[in-house]
Design a protein around this nucleic acid. Structure first.
Length: 258
DNA sequence: CGGCATGTTTCGCC
DNA sequence: AGGCGAAACATGCC
């Protein structure tokens, strides 16, 4: 489920953790660095932030990074801000837990913070270097995008998915942004006009904000249901195109995206 | 059973 | 050297 929008939803939901002290921690060692638990127990949570798709828990010691991968989800005090994964049944087995944190104040007597990830593509980090992640999609402006695209000739979709170009965009959001921008995903980045890039950054700010308010990445016009159904363009009724671009399944309208 | 899935990293080829 | 595409990772679900 996690693109930047989901990470933002979880970041907001985790704010009640700020000020608490971590009393106990458990992690699946296969997805956590050595010494993980020892570096967190006894630490006070100072802030919960987000960089791109990564949720960061700052403590008075290390900063815990939650990289949700393809199927990771979070619960705070036993509540899941996003309860169902789009491409899974909604099952939530204890054996899929990758992180459990308890604090000095656990109102519901359950984990203050729990990460559950069936597919185990997610990771836990401590003081990870995230400096390579580009400007955030939710506030992206055209000058930032131009700067990051200089010298790049790959398909615009592949570059928007690259976290070092723009932070937070995943497969669904990129398709949605390009859909509203009227730019075809297979266009070479160096052939786009400034006007194209303006429409892309405007779509990032406006459409992503509205998807965030609606609950996340699955709330675009190109819904997962429409993607799977191989339907028609909701704007003009043209049969949607489908191809692999940037290594990911891509949906677009060849009539209004050029 | 075959194929697909909201992601990232690695490898080899230009 | 660095950009780029394909493969690998790991597992569940239809």
């Amino acid at each position: 489920m996690p693109e930047g929008l989901e990470a933002e939803i979880w970041r907001r939901a985790a704010q009640p953790l700020v000020g608490r002290v971590i009393h106990q921690a458990w992690a699946d060692h296969r997805v956590a660095p050595d010494g993980f638990v020892d570096q967190l127990v006894g630490r006070r949570i100072d802030a919960v932030r987000r960089v791109g798709k990564v949720v960061l828990v700052d403590t008075d010691g290390a900063t815990l990074g939650l990289h949700l991968g393809m199927t990771g989800r979070l619960e705070v005090d036993g509540a899941a801000p996003i309860d169902r994964l789009e491409y899974s049944s909604g099952a939530d087995l204890a054996e899929w837990d990758r992180l459990r944190l308890w604090t000095d104040i656990d109102p519901k007597r359950v984990c203050a913070l729990r990460m559950n990830d069936p597919r185990r593509l997610g990771r836990l980090s401590l003081d990870a270097d995230l400096t390579a992640i580009g400007p955030d999609a939710l506030t992206l402006d055209t000058s930032q995008l131009v700067e990051r695209l200089v010298g790049r000739r790959a398909a615009i979709k592949a570059l928007l998915l690259d976290q070092s170009v723009v932070g937070g965009l995943g497969n669904l959001c990129v398709d949605e942004v390009l859909f509203w921008s009227g730019v075809a995903p297979n266009r070479a980045a160096d052939e786009l006009t400034l006007d194209d890039l303006d429409r892309i950054t405007a779509a990032c700010r406006e459409r992503l904000a509205s998807m965030l308010a609606a609950g996340g990445s699955t709330n675009g016009m190109l819904s997962p249901a429409l993607r799977a159904a191989r339907g028609v363009c909701p704007l003009d009724g043209t049969a949607l195109e489908r191809a692999t671009i940037g290594g990911r399944t891509t949906i677009w309208c060849a009539l209004h995206q050029r």
